[in-house]
Design a protein around this nucleic acid. Structure first.
Lengths: 216, 216
DNA sequence: TGTATAATGTTATAAATATAACAAAAGAAA
DNA sequence: TTTCTTTTGTTATATTTATAACATTATACA
């Protein structure tokens, strides 16, 4: 069994989203060519990506939207219910807690921890925000394999140490602390907004430098 | 002048962050080998990346941290002041508005627009939240080339149309609407949190499937 | 029932990216 | 001053990734 490249994996959520759109539009079948068009990709790449996991289409017909969506969902493991805790109930933490539909993304939010006493005790999505100090008490009676970290870099390392000691190995990390370097046996997905904004800045300048590349 | 690949560009913010850390630790010089270690990269890649833009090091010595940081800052264009508007002052918009240090990232937040009348009129970082309806009035007296979109997908398309009509060409987009497909002459940097979380889900499952790859 | 068409699955090629190798240059020490 | 060490800048190679080509298979229609 050949290793699936990270580039393919990162495209799977986009396939899944587009297929969800198509499904809600009532479209029943789709060809690799049309799927490539919505993905801004090529038919070849679509077929190669999908065939990493199996032959989901039918020659001469194409792919059944609902079936392909469901298969990609299975590949991503969205039917899972990874119990997770959220560290940080500031604006970002609250945005994550209220907006993300964890149940359809393979996770279940079990607890929220926060340092700020003004926020502790409030409710988010029916979950009471607990104090940072209660983490160990929570894990004594509950399980969680995943943590979502929406905290500034400086305060995050001791918390990661504690979570790691409690068995948490999966991290959705919005901080700049390099978890994977300290704990190589973890799975870490980073969301670095400042990096993203710097990249935007570069690309704006780059475009302005080459104002007219229609004829390149 | 050869085209710089997007992979190189996406590494620049990380170099910049690590160099900032080194600088604040009082470290004055760094070799490509050591920089590669903190980047979890290779010395070859570090040198090739940097040499896309010029020879910033000295043979036999290495790179001067402050100089290299400053050069990468210039490459990224962080000294710019792109005037920007924020669309959406929900939890995510507030998180962005309060946490991001736009001034050191090449942007200047000029205005915030929101639909929810309960939020309109409140202040974020000293900026009064205005109504969506006031966008055109604002642009009549102010300029902005960039928009940060922290809104759900369904409400975003008409707003993008209006912003595009007003001359906005750069988008930091947290929604799932595909701006670049509709307006190919824009620069769009997407932050797709649900995609990121799905990727995490896949990688957790993948790791659990292959529990022991220490001997691979 | 047979043939034409459409579109996949798969193999082969091209392009892009990362790694390795090495020569050149600067600084340190003898 | 000369040599040795360090480490860059750059060229060459290997690997990975994306694209293109093609043979196969299912469906639709005559």
């Amino acid at each position: 069994m050949k290793e699936i490249s990270i580039q393919v994996i990162k495209r799977l959520p986009r396939y899944y989203r587009f297929l969800s759109d198509l499904e809600s539009q009532g479209i029943e079948k789709i060809s690799s060519t049309k799927l490539a068009a919505v993905m801004s990709s090529t038919a070849s790449q679509v077929r190669q990506d999908l065939n990493c996991f199996g032959g989901f289409g039918q020659q001469g017909y194409g792919y059944t939207v609902s079936n392909l969506k469901s298969e990609i969902g299975k590949i991503l493991g969205l039917q899972n219910v990874h119990p997770a805790v959220l560290l940080g109930a500031g604006n970002l933490g609250r945005a994550i807690a209220t907006h993300m539909n964890f149940e359809s993304l393979g996770f279940k939010l079990k607890a929220i921890f926060e340092k700020d006493t003004k926020i502790i005790g409030t409710y988010l999505r029916g979950i009471k925000v607990l104090s940072d100090e209660d983490i160990e008490a929570f894990f004594a009676e509950n399980e969680a394999d995943t943590a979502f970290l929406t905290l500034p870099k400086d305060s995050v390392e001791p918390l990661i140490d504690r979570l790691y000691a409690l068995g948490v190995r999966n991290f959705w990390n919005f901080s700049h602390f390099d978890i994977a370097k300290k704990y190589p046996d973890t799975v870490v997905e980073n969301v670095h907004m400042t990096d993203s904004l710097m990249t935007l800045c570069y690309r704006i300048n780059d475009k302005e430098k080459q104002p007219d590349d229609a004829n390149s």
